[in-house]
Design a protein around this nucleic acid. Structure first.
Lengths: 249, 249
DNA sequence: ACAAAAGTGTTTTTTATACACCCATGC
DNA sequence: GCATGGGTGTATAAAAAACACTTTTGT
Protein backbone atom coordinates (compact mmCIF):
# COMPACT_ATOMS: atom_id res chain seq x y z
CA UNK A 1 0.00 0.00 0.00
CA UNK A 2 0.96 3.60 -0.29
CA UNK A 3 2.74 5.16 2.67
CA UNK A 4 1.66 8.65 3.68
CA UNK A 5 5.03 10.31 3.34
CA UNK A 6 6.39 8.64 0.22
CA UNK A 7 5.97 10.32 -3.11
CA UNK A 8 3.63 8.66 -5.50
CA UNK A 9 6.30 7.44 -7.91
CA UNK A 10 8.49 6.06 -5.12
CA UNK A 11 5.68 4.12 -3.54
CA UNK A 12 4.82 2.54 -6.85
CA UNK A 13 8.42 1.54 -7.42
CA UNK A 14 8.68 -0.10 -4.00
CA UNK A 15 5.41 -1.88 -4.42
CA UNK A 16 6.40 -3.21 -7.84
CA UNK A 17 9.68 -4.48 -6.53
CA UNK A 18 8.15 -6.63 -3.84
CA UNK A 19 5.89 -8.39 -6.31
CA UNK A 20 7.16 -11.30 -8.32
CA UNK A 21 7.28 -11.14 -12.08
CA UNK A 22 6.36 -14.32 -13.80
CA UNK A 23 7.01 -16.15 -16.96
CA UNK A 24 4.19 -18.57 -17.36
CA UNK A 25 4.67 -21.83 -19.16
CA UNK A 26 2.39 -24.72 -19.84
CA UNK A 27 3.63 -28.27 -19.53
CA UNK A 28 1.64 -31.09 -21.03
CA UNK A 29 1.26 -34.59 -19.74
CA UNK A 30 0.21 -36.25 -22.99
CA UNK A 31 -0.94 -39.82 -22.58
CA UNK A 32 -1.87 -42.35 -25.20
CA UNK A 33 -2.72 -46.00 -25.19
CA UNK A 34 -1.05 -48.33 -27.62
CA UNK A 35 -3.85 -50.80 -27.96
CA UNK A 36 -1.78 -53.24 -29.93
CA UNK A 37 0.60 -53.93 -27.08
CA UNK A 38 -1.60 -52.63 -24.28
CA UNK A 39 0.87 -50.07 -23.11
CA UNK A 40 0.19 -46.73 -21.51
CA UNK A 41 2.50 -44.13 -23.00
CA UNK A 42 3.48 -40.58 -22.23
CA UNK A 43 5.12 -38.18 -24.66
CA UNK A 44 8.51 -36.87 -23.60
CA UNK A 45 10.91 -34.46 -25.20
CA UNK A 46 14.65 -34.28 -24.78
CA UNK A 47 15.65 -30.73 -23.91
CA UNK A 48 18.16 -29.04 -26.18
CA UNK A 49 18.90 -26.00 -24.07
CA UNK A 50 19.87 -25.06 -20.57
CA UNK A 51 18.78 -25.63 -17.94
CA UNK A 52 18.59 -29.42 -17.93
CA UNK A 53 20.18 -29.70 -21.36
CA UNK A 54 19.80 -33.24 -22.76
CA UNK A 55 17.39 -34.13 -20.03
CA UNK A 56 13.99 -35.60 -20.79
CA UNK A 57 11.04 -33.40 -19.95
CA UNK A 58 7.34 -32.92 -20.53
CA UNK A 59 6.67 -30.96 -23.70
CA UNK A 60 5.93 -27.38 -22.79
CA UNK A 61 6.14 -23.82 -23.92
CA UNK A 62 6.01 -20.31 -22.56
CA UNK A 63 2.74 -18.47 -23.00
CA UNK A 64 2.69 -15.78 -25.65
CA UNK A 65 1.03 -12.41 -25.67
CA UNK A 66 -2.67 -12.66 -26.29
CA UNK A 67 -2.63 -16.43 -25.98
CA UNK A 68 -4.86 -18.26 -23.54
CA UNK A 69 -3.37 -20.97 -21.35
CA UNK A 70 -5.34 -23.64 -23.12
CA UNK A 71 -4.28 -22.32 -26.51
CA UNK A 72 -0.68 -22.55 -25.42
CA UNK A 73 -1.29 -26.13 -24.36
CA UNK A 74 -2.86 -26.93 -27.73
CA UNK A 75 -0.03 -25.23 -29.54
CA UNK A 76 2.62 -27.28 -27.73
CA UNK A 77 0.74 -30.41 -28.52
CA UNK A 78 0.24 -29.46 -32.15
CA UNK A 79 3.92 -28.68 -32.55
CA UNK A 80 4.83 -32.17 -31.46
CA UNK A 81 2.20 -34.47 -32.85
CA UNK A 82 -0.52 -34.42 -35.46
CA UNK A 83 -3.69 -35.80 -33.99
CA UNK A 84 -7.39 -35.19 -34.49
CA UNK A 85 -8.91 -36.83 -31.49
CA UNK A 86 -7.96 -35.85 -28.04
CA UNK A 87 -9.10 -34.88 -24.61
CA UNK A 88 -7.39 -31.98 -22.87
CA UNK A 89 -7.89 -30.35 -19.49
CA UNK A 90 -5.97 -28.25 -17.02
CA UNK A 91 -4.21 -30.20 -14.32
CA UNK A 92 -2.51 -28.11 -11.68
CA UNK A 93 -0.31 -25.06 -11.34
CA UNK A 94 3.19 -25.49 -9.99
CA UNK A 95 4.75 -22.28 -8.85
CA UNK A 96 7.03 -22.81 -5.89
CA UNK A 97 9.94 -20.41 -5.87
CA UNK A 98 13.07 -22.20 -6.99
CA UNK A 99 11.34 -24.79 -9.14
CA UNK A 100 13.23 -23.44 -12.17
CA UNK A 101 16.99 -22.85 -11.90
CA UNK A 102 16.67 -19.80 -14.13
CA UNK A 103 15.15 -18.09 -11.11
CA UNK A 104 18.62 -17.01 -10.04
CA UNK A 105 18.83 -14.02 -7.72
CA UNK A 106 20.43 -11.94 -10.47
CA UNK A 107 17.34 -12.33 -12.63
CA UNK A 108 15.54 -9.69 -10.52
CA UNK A 109 13.03 -12.10 -9.09
CA UNK A 110 11.61 -13.49 -12.28
CA UNK A 111 9.67 -16.62 -11.46
CA UNK A 112 8.75 -19.51 -13.71
CA UNK A 113 5.31 -20.84 -13.22
CA UNK A 114 4.03 -23.98 -14.86
CA UNK A 115 0.37 -24.47 -15.58
CA UNK A 116 0.16 -28.14 -16.41
CA UNK A 117 -2.31 -29.72 -18.77
CA UNK A 118 -3.26 -33.30 -19.12
CA UNK A 119 -4.13 -34.81 -22.48
CA UNK A 120 -5.21 -38.17 -23.79
CA UNK A 121 -4.71 -38.71 -27.51
CA UNK A 122 -5.38 -41.52 -29.94
CA UNK A 123 -2.09 -43.34 -30.32
CA UNK A 124 -2.74 -45.04 -33.62
CA UNK A 125 -3.45 -41.69 -35.21
CA UNK A 126 -0.85 -39.60 -33.43
CA UNK A 127 1.99 -38.88 -35.76
CA UNK A 128 5.12 -37.40 -34.24
CA UNK A 129 6.13 -34.33 -36.16
CA UNK A 130 9.66 -34.60 -37.52
CA UNK A 131 12.25 -33.61 -34.93
CA UNK A 132 15.97 -34.16 -34.68
CA UNK A 133 16.08 -37.90 -34.21
CA UNK A 134 15.29 -39.18 -30.79
CA UNK A 135 14.32 -35.85 -29.30
CA UNK A 136 10.69 -36.79 -28.95
CA UNK A 137 9.42 -40.17 -27.90
CA UNK A 138 6.63 -42.14 -26.32
CA UNK A 139 7.71 -43.66 -23.02
CA UNK A 140 5.88 -46.37 -21.19
CA UNK A 141 4.69 -44.78 -18.00
CA UNK A 142 6.44 -47.21 -15.65
CA UNK A 143 9.72 -46.68 -17.51
CA UNK A 144 9.89 -42.90 -17.45
CA UNK A 145 13.37 -41.71 -16.45
CA UNK A 146 14.31 -38.81 -14.22
CA UNK A 147 12.87 -35.69 -15.81
CA UNK A 148 13.83 -32.02 -15.83
CA UNK A 149 12.45 -29.58 -13.26
CA UNK A 150 9.59 -30.99 -11.19
CA UNK A 151 8.22 -32.85 -14.18
CA UNK A 152 8.17 -36.26 -12.53
CA UNK A 153 5.85 -34.81 -9.95
CA UNK A 154 3.65 -33.30 -12.64
CA UNK A 155 3.51 -36.61 -14.46
CA UNK A 156 2.55 -38.42 -11.29
CA UNK A 157 -0.21 -35.93 -10.76
CA UNK A 158 -1.40 -36.36 -14.33
CA UNK A 159 -1.38 -40.12 -14.05
CA UNK A 160 -3.58 -39.98 -10.98
CA UNK A 161 -5.98 -37.67 -12.78
CA UNK A 162 -6.08 -39.95 -15.80
CA UNK A 163 -7.15 -42.91 -13.70
CA UNK A 164 -9.78 -40.91 -11.90
CA UNK A 165 -11.15 -39.34 -15.04
CA UNK A 166 -11.51 -42.69 -16.69
CA UNK A 167 -13.78 -43.85 -13.92
CA UNK A 168 -16.34 -41.11 -14.10
CA UNK A 169 -15.98 -39.42 -17.47
CA UNK A 170 -16.38 -40.56 -21.01
CA UNK A 171 -12.87 -39.55 -22.03
CA UNK A 172 -12.20 -43.00 -23.46
CA UNK A 173 -14.51 -42.19 -26.34
CA UNK A 174 -12.45 -39.17 -27.31
CA UNK A 175 -9.62 -41.50 -28.01
CA UNK A 176 -11.27 -44.59 -29.42
CA UNK A 177 -12.21 -44.72 -33.08
CA UNK A 178 -15.74 -43.68 -34.02
CA UNK A 179 -16.75 -47.34 -33.96
CA UNK A 180 -15.18 -49.76 -31.54
CA UNK A 181 -15.84 -53.11 -29.98
CA UNK A 182 -16.62 -53.48 -26.32
CA UNK A 183 -13.41 -55.39 -26.01
CA UNK A 184 -11.47 -52.40 -27.39
CA UNK A 185 -13.04 -50.33 -24.68
CA UNK A 186 -12.30 -52.93 -22.04
CA UNK A 187 -8.66 -53.22 -23.09
CA UNK A 188 -8.28 -49.47 -22.87
CA UNK A 189 -9.58 -49.53 -19.31
CA UNK A 190 -7.35 -52.48 -18.44
CA UNK A 191 -4.27 -50.76 -19.80
CA UNK A 192 -4.85 -47.68 -17.71
CA UNK A 193 -6.42 -49.10 -14.57
CA UNK A 194 -4.80 -52.52 -14.47
CA UNK A 195 -6.19 -55.95 -15.29
CA UNK A 196 -8.11 -56.35 -12.10
CA UNK A 197 -10.33 -53.34 -12.18
CA UNK A 198 -13.28 -55.41 -13.33
CA UNK A 199 -14.38 -58.63 -14.90
CA UNK A 200 -15.11 -58.24 -18.62
CA UNK A 201 -18.63 -59.57 -18.53
CA UNK A 202 -19.63 -57.27 -15.68
CA UNK A 203 -17.99 -54.30 -17.35
CA UNK A 204 -19.99 -55.13 -20.45
CA UNK A 205 -23.38 -55.36 -18.87
CA UNK A 206 -22.83 -52.30 -16.73
CA UNK A 207 -21.90 -50.16 -19.72
CA UNK A 208 -24.67 -51.47 -21.94
CA UNK A 209 -27.29 -50.98 -19.27
CA UNK A 210 -26.40 -47.30 -19.13
CA UNK A 211 -27.71 -47.01 -22.65
CA UNK A 212 -25.33 -44.59 -24.31
CA UNK A 213 -23.47 -47.14 -26.36
CA UNK A 214 -25.34 -48.04 -29.50
CA UNK A 215 -24.77 -51.18 -31.45
CA UNK A 216 -24.20 -50.24 -35.07
CA UNK A 217 -25.06 -53.76 -36.15
CA UNK A 218 -21.78 -53.96 -38.03
CA UNK A 219 -19.64 -56.94 -37.10
CA UNK A 220 -15.91 -57.20 -37.22
CA UNK A 221 -13.80 -60.32 -37.01
CA UNK A 222 -10.38 -60.33 -35.42
CA UNK A 223 -8.74 -63.66 -36.22
CA UNK A 224 -10.44 -66.68 -34.82
CA UNK A 225 -13.52 -66.42 -32.68
CA UNK A 226 -16.94 -64.97 -32.95
CA UNK A 227 -17.09 -61.56 -34.65
CA UNK A 228 -17.68 -58.55 -32.37
CA UNK A 229 -20.28 -55.84 -32.73
CA UNK A 230 -19.07 -52.36 -33.39
CA UNK A 231 -20.54 -49.83 -31.01
CA UNK A 232 -20.52 -46.07 -31.06
CA UNK A 233 -20.84 -43.51 -28.29
CA UNK A 234 -24.18 -41.72 -28.27
CA UNK A 235 -23.49 -38.25 -26.89
CA UNK A 236 -27.19 -37.39 -26.68
CA UNK A 237 -28.00 -40.47 -24.65
CA UNK A 238 -25.03 -39.66 -22.43
CA UNK A 239 -26.21 -36.12 -21.63
CA UNK A 240 -28.22 -37.07 -18.51
CA UNK A 241 -25.07 -38.52 -16.95
CA UNK A 242 -23.05 -35.41 -17.62
CA UNK A 243 -22.75 -34.08 -14.10
CA UNK A 244 -23.20 -37.29 -12.21
CA UNK A 245 -20.29 -39.05 -10.61
CA UNK A 246 -19.01 -42.57 -11.08
CA UNK A 247 -20.68 -43.79 -14.20
CA UNK A 248 -18.10 -46.31 -15.27
CA UNK A 249 -16.13 -49.16 -13.78
CA UNK B 1 7.06 -12.14 -35.52
CA UNK B 2 10.53 -11.70 -36.80
CA UNK B 3 12.52 -11.95 -39.99
CA UNK B 4 15.30 -14.44 -40.64
CA UNK B 5 17.92 -11.77 -41.15
CA UNK B 6 17.66 -10.20 -37.72
CA UNK B 7 20.75 -10.14 -35.55
CA UNK B 8 20.96 -12.33 -32.50
CA UNK B 9 20.35 -9.59 -29.99
CA UNK B 10 17.44 -8.35 -32.01
CA UNK B 11 16.01 -11.80 -32.25
CA UNK B 12 16.18 -12.21 -28.51
CA UNK B 13 14.48 -8.89 -28.03
CA UNK B 14 11.75 -9.80 -30.47
CA UNK B 15 11.34 -13.21 -28.96
CA UNK B 16 11.00 -11.75 -25.50
CA UNK B 17 8.44 -9.33 -26.76
CA UNK B 18 6.24 -12.08 -28.11
CA UNK B 19 6.08 -13.77 -24.72
CA UNK B 20 3.55 -12.56 -22.22
CA UNK B 21 4.66 -11.11 -18.90
CA UNK B 22 2.49 -12.06 -16.02
CA UNK B 23 1.44 -10.75 -12.71
CA UNK B 24 0.21 -13.72 -10.78
CA UNK B 25 -2.46 -13.37 -8.17
CA UNK B 26 -4.19 -15.84 -5.95
CA UNK B 27 -7.91 -15.56 -5.31
CA UNK B 28 -9.45 -17.47 -2.47
CA UNK B 29 -12.87 -19.02 -2.31
CA UNK B 30 -13.22 -19.23 1.45
CA UNK B 31 -16.21 -21.18 2.63
CA UNK B 32 -17.53 -21.68 6.09
CA UNK B 33 -20.61 -23.25 7.56
CA UNK B 34 -22.61 -21.39 10.14
CA UNK B 35 -23.90 -24.38 12.02
CA UNK B 36 -26.25 -22.33 14.14
CA UNK B 37 -28.38 -21.27 11.20
CA UNK B 38 -27.25 -23.97 8.78
CA UNK B 39 -25.99 -21.55 6.20
CA UNK B 40 -23.14 -22.00 3.76
CA UNK B 41 -21.11 -18.81 3.62
CA UNK B 42 -18.37 -17.42 1.44
CA UNK B 43 -16.07 -14.58 2.38
CA UNK B 44 -16.21 -11.55 0.09
CA UNK B 45 -14.33 -8.29 0.07
CA UNK B 46 -15.44 -4.98 -1.32
CA UNK B 47 -12.75 -3.62 -3.59
CA UNK B 48 -11.41 -0.18 -2.78
CA UNK B 49 -9.43 0.44 -5.93
CA UNK B 50 -9.78 0.33 -9.67
CA UNK B 51 -10.64 -1.69 -11.54
CA UNK B 52 -14.04 -2.69 -10.19
CA UNK B 53 -13.89 -0.12 -7.41
CA UNK B 54 -16.65 -0.74 -4.84
CA UNK B 55 -17.42 -4.07 -6.37
CA UNK B 56 -17.50 -7.24 -4.29
CA UNK B 57 -14.80 -9.75 -5.06
CA UNK B 58 -13.05 -12.82 -3.75
CA UNK B 59 -10.23 -11.94 -1.40
CA UNK B 60 -6.97 -12.15 -3.26
CA UNK B 61 -3.48 -10.79 -3.55
CA UNK B 62 -0.60 -10.62 -5.95
CA UNK B 63 2.22 -13.07 -5.35
CA UNK B 64 5.38 -11.61 -3.87
CA UNK B 65 8.98 -12.39 -4.60
CA UNK B 66 10.08 -15.62 -2.99
CA UNK B 67 6.55 -16.50 -1.97
CA UNK B 68 4.94 -19.77 -2.96
CA UNK B 69 1.44 -19.77 -4.39
CA UNK B 70 0.08 -21.53 -1.36
CA UNK B 71 1.83 -19.11 0.97
CA UNK B 72 0.21 -16.24 -0.87
CA UNK B 73 -3.14 -17.94 -0.43
CA UNK B 74 -2.51 -18.38 3.30
CA UNK B 75 -1.37 -14.78 3.61
CA UNK B 76 -4.54 -13.45 2.01
CA UNK B 77 -6.60 -15.57 4.28
CA UNK B 78 -4.63 -14.60 7.36
CA UNK B 79 -4.95 -10.91 6.51
CA UNK B 80 -8.72 -11.21 6.51
CA UNK B 81 -9.61 -13.65 9.21
CA UNK B 82 -8.05 -15.20 12.26
CA UNK B 83 -8.69 -18.91 12.21
CA UNK B 84 -6.86 -22.00 13.39
CA UNK B 85 -8.66 -24.79 11.66
CA UNK B 86 -8.96 -24.88 7.96
CA UNK B 87 -8.63 -26.89 4.83
CA UNK B 88 -6.96 -25.29 1.80
CA UNK B 89 -6.20 -26.55 -1.66
CA UNK B 90 -5.53 -25.20 -5.11
CA UNK B 91 -8.57 -24.93 -7.31
CA UNK B 92 -7.87 -23.85 -10.86
CA UNK B 93 -5.87 -21.30 -12.79
CA UNK B 94 -7.70 -18.67 -14.76
CA UNK B 95 -5.57 -16.91 -17.32
CA UNK B 96 -7.53 -15.98 -20.39
CA UNK B 97 -6.26 -12.81 -22.00
CA UNK B 98 -8.58 -9.95 -21.19
CA UNK B 99 -9.85 -11.35 -17.89
CA UNK B 100 -8.42 -8.30 -16.12
CA UNK B 101 -9.15 -4.82 -17.54
CA UNK B 102 -5.65 -3.70 -16.52
CA UNK B 103 -4.40 -5.76 -19.42
CA UNK B 104 -4.78 -2.73 -21.69
CA UNK B 105 -2.74 -2.74 -24.90
CA UNK B 106 -0.62 0.16 -23.59
CA UNK B 107 0.57 -1.97 -20.66
CA UNK B 108 3.01 -3.82 -22.95
CA UNK B 109 1.19 -7.08 -22.78
CA UNK B 110 1.19 -7.61 -19.04
CA UNK B 111 -1.26 -10.32 -18.21
CA UNK B 112 -3.03 -11.00 -14.93
CA UNK B 113 -3.28 -14.62 -14.01
CA UNK B 114 -5.32 -15.89 -11.11
CA UNK B 115 -4.43 -19.10 -9.35
CA UNK B 116 -7.51 -19.78 -7.28
CA UNK B 117 -7.56 -21.57 -3.98
CA UNK B 118 -10.44 -23.08 -2.16
CA UNK B 119 -10.67 -23.06 1.61
CA UNK B 120 -13.05 -24.32 4.22
CA UNK B 121 -12.73 -22.72 7.64
CA UNK B 122 -14.44 -23.10 10.98
CA UNK B 123 -17.04 -20.37 11.11
CA UNK B 124 -17.52 -20.19 14.85
CA UNK B 125 -13.82 -19.57 15.29
CA UNK B 126 -13.18 -17.33 12.29
CA UNK B 127 -12.81 -13.78 13.43
CA UNK B 128 -12.85 -11.12 10.74
CA UNK B 129 -9.85 -8.86 11.17
CA UNK B 130 -10.85 -5.23 11.57
CA UNK B 131 -11.45 -3.57 8.21
CA UNK B 132 -13.17 -0.35 7.24
CA UNK B 133 -16.76 -1.20 8.08
CA UNK B 134 -18.56 -3.39 5.65
CA UNK B 135 -15.60 -4.07 3.39
CA UNK B 136 -15.41 -7.72 4.32
CA UNK B 137 -18.39 -9.96 4.86
CA UNK B 138 -19.72 -13.47 4.86
CA UNK B 139 -22.31 -13.94 2.15
CA UNK B 140 -24.69 -16.84 1.89
CA UNK B 141 -23.69 -18.67 -1.23
CA UNK B 142 -27.06 -18.39 -2.96
CA UNK B 143 -27.13 -14.64 -2.30
CA UNK B 144 -23.75 -13.69 -3.71
CA UNK B 145 -24.02 -10.60 -5.92
CA UNK B 146 -22.25 -9.89 -9.19
CA UNK B 147 -18.53 -9.99 -8.46
CA UNK B 148 -15.48 -8.32 -9.97
CA UNK B 149 -13.49 -9.93 -12.79
CA UNK B 150 -14.43 -13.56 -13.43
CA UNK B 151 -14.91 -14.19 -9.73
CA UNK B 152 -18.45 -15.53 -10.02
CA UNK B 153 -17.07 -18.22 -12.26
CA UNK B 154 -14.30 -19.01 -9.79
CA UNK B 155 -16.80 -19.19 -6.96
CA UNK B 156 -18.99 -21.55 -8.95
CA UNK B 157 -15.99 -23.73 -9.58
CA UNK B 158 -15.08 -23.70 -5.91
CA UNK B 159 -18.60 -24.56 -4.86
CA UNK B 160 -18.59 -27.61 -7.12
CA UNK B 161 -15.25 -28.69 -5.68
CA UNK B 162 -16.49 -28.23 -2.15
CA UNK B 163 -19.42 -30.55 -2.74
CA UNK B 164 -17.23 -33.15 -4.39
CA UNK B 165 -14.55 -33.00 -1.74
CA UNK B 166 -17.08 -33.48 1.00
CA UNK B 167 -18.17 -36.76 -0.53
CA UNK B 168 -14.80 -38.44 -0.68
CA UNK B 169 -12.49 -36.61 1.67
CA UNK B 170 -12.46 -36.01 5.37
CA UNK B 171 -12.38 -32.22 5.04
CA UNK B 172 -15.35 -31.87 7.36
CA UNK B 173 -13.12 -32.84 10.27
CA UNK B 174 -10.76 -29.96 9.58
CA UNK B 175 -13.57 -27.65 10.31
CA UNK B 176 -15.51 -29.34 13.06
CA UNK B 177 -14.38 -28.98 16.67
CA UNK B 178 -12.08 -31.67 18.03
CA UNK B 179 -15.10 -33.43 19.49
CA UNK B 180 -18.44 -33.32 17.77
CA UNK B 181 -21.70 -35.18 17.71
CA UNK B 182 -22.74 -37.21 14.71
CA UNK B 183 -25.57 -34.80 14.29
CA UNK B 184 -23.11 -31.90 14.01
CA UNK B 185 -21.45 -33.80 11.23
CA UNK B 186 -24.75 -34.60 9.57
CA UNK B 187 -25.88 -30.97 9.69
CA UNK B 188 -22.65 -29.88 8.09
CA UNK B 189 -23.22 -32.29 5.24
CA UNK B 190 -26.83 -31.19 4.91
CA UNK B 191 -25.91 -27.55 4.74
CA UNK B 192 -23.45 -28.10 1.94
CA UNK B 193 -25.07 -30.91 0.00
CA UNK B 194 -28.74 -30.21 0.69
CA UNK B 195 -31.22 -31.90 2.99
CA UNK B 196 -31.85 -34.85 0.75
CA UNK B 197 -28.39 -36.22 0.33
CA UNK B 198 -29.03 -38.98 2.83
CA UNK B 199 -31.19 -40.17 5.66
CA UNK B 200 -29.63 -39.48 9.06
CA UNK B 201 -29.73 -43.00 10.36
CA UNK B 202 -28.09 -44.39 7.24
CA UNK B 203 -25.46 -41.67 7.28
CA UNK B 204 -24.75 -42.63 10.86
CA UNK B 205 -24.33 -46.33 10.37
CA UNK B 206 -22.27 -45.91 7.22
CA UNK B 207 -19.83 -43.58 8.95
CA UNK B 208 -19.56 -45.64 12.10
CA UNK B 209 -19.00 -48.84 10.16
CA UNK B 210 -15.95 -47.28 8.52
CA UNK B 211 -14.36 -47.21 11.93
CA UNK B 212 -12.44 -43.95 11.99
CA UNK B 213 -14.82 -42.11 14.27
CA UNK B 214 -14.22 -42.96 17.86
CA UNK B 215 -16.74 -42.44 20.58
CA UNK B 216 -15.10 -40.48 23.38
CA UNK B 217 -17.74 -41.67 25.81
CA UNK B 218 -18.46 -38.07 26.75
CA UNK B 219 -22.08 -37.04 26.42
CA UNK B 220 -23.45 -33.63 25.68
CA UNK B 221 -27.00 -32.44 26.09
CA UNK B 222 -28.51 -29.86 23.79
CA UNK B 223 -31.81 -28.78 25.34
CA UNK B 224 -34.42 -31.47 25.51
CA UNK B 225 -33.76 -34.96 24.26
CA UNK B 226 -31.30 -37.69 24.88
CA UNK B 227 -27.70 -36.53 25.22
CA UNK B 228 -25.44 -37.20 22.26
CA UNK B 229 -22.06 -38.89 22.25
CA UNK B 230 -19.09 -36.81 21.32
CA UNK B 231 -16.95 -38.43 18.66
CA UNK B 232 -13.53 -37.58 17.37
CA UNK B 233 -11.84 -38.25 14.07
CA UNK B 234 -9.17 -40.93 14.26
CA UNK B 235 -6.57 -40.02 11.63
CA UNK B 236 -4.68 -43.28 12.07
CA UNK B 237 -7.77 -45.40 11.52
CA UNK B 238 -8.55 -43.26 8.50
CA UNK B 239 -5.17 -43.83 6.84
CA UNK B 240 -6.21 -46.95 4.87
CA UNK B 241 -8.95 -44.90 3.18
CA UNK B 242 -6.60 -42.15 2.19
CA UNK B 243 -6.40 -42.78 -1.53
CA UNK B 244 -9.70 -44.54 -1.99
CA UNK B 245 -12.64 -42.79 -3.52
CA UNK B 246 -16.12 -42.23 -2.19
CA UNK B 247 -15.91 -42.98 1.46
CA UNK B 248 -18.73 -40.76 2.65
CA UNK B 249 -22.33 -40.02 1.81
C1' DA C 1 -13.85 -80.88 -34.28
C1' DC C 2 -11.97 -77.64 -31.53
C1' DA C 3 -9.84 -73.49 -29.97
C1' DA C 4 -10.65 -68.73 -29.64
C1' DA C 5 -13.11 -64.71 -29.05
C1' DA C 6 -17.82 -62.69 -28.18
C1' DG C 7 -21.74 -62.49 -25.64
C1' DT C 8 -25.52 -64.08 -22.06
C1' DG C 9 -27.22 -65.53 -17.75
C1' DT C 10 -27.29 -66.99 -12.83
C1' DT C 11 -25.88 -66.97 -8.09
C1' DT C 12 -23.99 -64.78 -4.18
C1' DT C 13 -22.57 -60.91 -1.63
C1' DT C 14 -22.51 -56.31 -0.56
C1' DT C 15 -24.39 -51.77 -0.33
C1' DA C 16 -28.05 -48.37 -0.51
C1' DT C 17 -32.64 -46.77 0.88
C1' DA C 18 -36.65 -46.34 3.54
C1' DC C 19 -38.62 -46.40 7.60
C1' DA C 20 -40.17 -48.32 12.15
C1' DC C 21 -38.98 -48.33 16.66
C1' DC C 22 -36.51 -47.91 21.23
C1' DC C 23 -33.74 -44.72 24.56
C1' DA C 24 -32.67 -40.86 27.61
C1' DT C 25 -33.39 -36.44 28.86
C1' DG C 26 -35.84 -31.60 29.94
C1' DC C 27 -39.87 -29.55 31.10
C1' DG D 1 -45.96 -38.10 30.80
C1' DC D 2 -44.80 -36.50 26.67
C1' DA D 3 -42.25 -33.90 23.41
C1' DT D 4 -37.59 -33.81 21.78
C1' DG D 5 -33.50 -35.14 19.96
C1' DG D 6 -30.32 -39.47 19.98
C1' DG D 7 -29.62 -44.01 18.59
C1' DT D 8 -30.68 -49.05 16.83
C1' DG D 9 -32.64 -52.43 13.87
C1' DT D 10 -35.06 -54.52 10.02
C1' DA D 11 -37.04 -55.31 5.50
C1' DT D 12 -36.56 -54.32 0.75
C1' DA D 13 -34.26 -52.95 -3.39
C1' DA D 14 -30.34 -52.24 -6.10
C1' DA D 15 -25.59 -52.79 -7.33
C1' DA D 16 -21.20 -55.23 -7.47
C1' DA D 17 -18.58 -59.41 -7.98
C1' DA D 18 -17.78 -64.08 -9.34
C1' DC D 19 -18.23 -67.31 -12.60
C1' DA D 20 -20.64 -70.82 -15.55
C1' DC D 21 -22.30 -71.26 -19.89
C1' DT D 22 -23.75 -70.44 -24.88
C1' DT D 23 -22.80 -68.56 -29.55
C1' DT D 24 -20.17 -67.85 -33.67
C1' DT D 25 -16.35 -67.70 -36.02
C1' DG D 26 -11.29 -69.41 -38.13
C1' DT D 27 -8.45 -73.23 -38.84
Amino acid sequence: MKSNSASNSQSIAVKEKSLADFKVGVDNVIFSVDSQYNRLLVLLRKRKQEPFNNCWSLPGTLVRQGESLQDAAYRTLAEKIRVNNLYLEQLYTFGNPGRDPREAPESFGVRYLSVSYFALVRYEEAEIIAQPTGNLAWYQVPEVPQLAFDHNEILEYGYRRLRNKLEYSPIAFDVLPERFTLNDLYQLYCTILGENFSDYSNFRSRLLKLGFLSDTGVKVSRGAGRPASLYCFDAIAFAPFKDKPLVFI
